[in-house]
Design a protein around this nucleic acid. Structure first.
Lengths: 209, 209
DNA sequence: GGCGCGATATTTGTATGCAACTGGGGAGGA
DNA sequence: TCCTCCCCAGTTGCATACAAATATCGCGCC
């Protein structure tokens, strides 16, 4: 693993964890000193973070953690609903028995008691699998990027048991749609699945302020 | 303008013009010598080109012009149809008279005789304007990126007069949809507009090879 | 006291040199 | 003859030094 990748992962994780708040300036020299590397890999990491939407980067003015206002996060869900909905439809048409079995295992692991810590990661893997099977090469890159951005706000809210169960149920319906190769149904379920997350997030935000 | 930006633009233009063919290796030292800069800005430009999808980049192995197979290009249109379709719907709901007038000017310039050379650029500007008005912040970045990728293949095909006129007509219908604030109609027109480009491209490819 | 302007200090952008890794070609062995 | 391993050339990755641009702070002016 290169130094650039280490720096990238370090900063991204700090942003996702909330240690680095939106608007925080990211000085090259400071980061370099903290991680014991030179400014060169730090610069490259900052460029990539910017390309991936985590930071803003202005020439001669440096990088800062990007601020995502609620409307922007909301819009990212809307786009994901479109993209992943279409991906689900295509997946329903081309999925193999082996791929289906693998996804059922993923679901089972996610539903296991005590898997709370890994839910997020497993959920990510499930969605990524569907995107990959769909054959929409760009969709995978774009949707996963948007999903990560959404995580920036989701991290601060914990979902209720009922919401987790509903999410698991969505996944099961999705697998059923794949099993019976119903593209329309798969698309509808996926759209609802994602838009539900957006709505819940919105609902919670409003009730809190 | 920084040296990095100059290098980026130079390489991108060469890729778009076809001077640099897919698979061509991009050595840092060679490019640096050609443009009279050091390897540092060249490295940064190559990273950005990779992030934008123009090149492949493997650690310790360098950059090469990315090869887009037809299926991938096709899928990029499918996703753009989703994203820009939704953007058009939202734009129809929020557009102001001033924005509408500006877009009508764009259309007029595009339709002017002798504007062939600028058609591509003006078309890009029109789509970008719609995406920006829609308020779907991510949509603008993603869709424009995908549009540039599509250009990689489109450059080698020239569209017929009939196709250009059809495209102009689509744009006019789009403006009409905005004028009467019909979101559904705007979405349908935009979807058709983009999927038509995909279909034409596909059609031409099949008949040639 | 507020505002504009300019020098300075800090930060980013670029160049250069060295270290580390990759890929290919050749020698040795099966 | 083919496979494997190793060495070396060439390229990329990283560190350091210097140049250029920006933002801040203080001074003078209004």
């Amino acid at each position: 693993m290169t130094a650039t990748e280490r720096v990238y992962a370090h900063i991204r994780d700090q942003i996702l964890a909330g240690t680095l708040r939106p608007g925080a300036r990211l000085g090259e020299a400071g980061i370099a000193a903290d991680l014991g590397v030179s400014r060169t890999p730090v610069r490259e990491a900052l460029r990539k973070l910017s390309a991936d939407g985590y930071t803003d980067l202005r020439p001669h003015a440096g990088a800062a953690v990007r601020l995502w206002d609620p409307a922007e996060v909301r819009s990212s869900f809307a786009i994901r609903a479109d993209i992943e909905g279409q991906a689900a439809a295509r997946t329903a048409q081309t999925i193999t028995a082996g791929q289906l079995a693998a996804m059922e295992q993923l679901c089972a692991r996610m539903e296991a008691p005590g898997a709370v810590a890994q839910r997020s990661e497993l959920n990510r893997e499930l969605h990524q699998t569907i995107l990959r099977i769909s054959g929409l090469v760009h969709a995978e890159r774009i949707a996963m990027q948007l999903a990560d951005i959404a995580l920036l706000t989701l991290t601060f809210h914990s979902f209720s048991n009922a919401q987790a169960e509903r999410s698991d149920s969505d996944h099961r319906m999705l697998l059923m749609a794949f099993r019976i190769r119903d593209a329309d149904y798969a698309q509808a379920v996926m759209r609802t699945h994602i838009l539900t997350a957006a709505a819940v997030l919105d609902d919670v935000s409003r009730s809190r302020g």
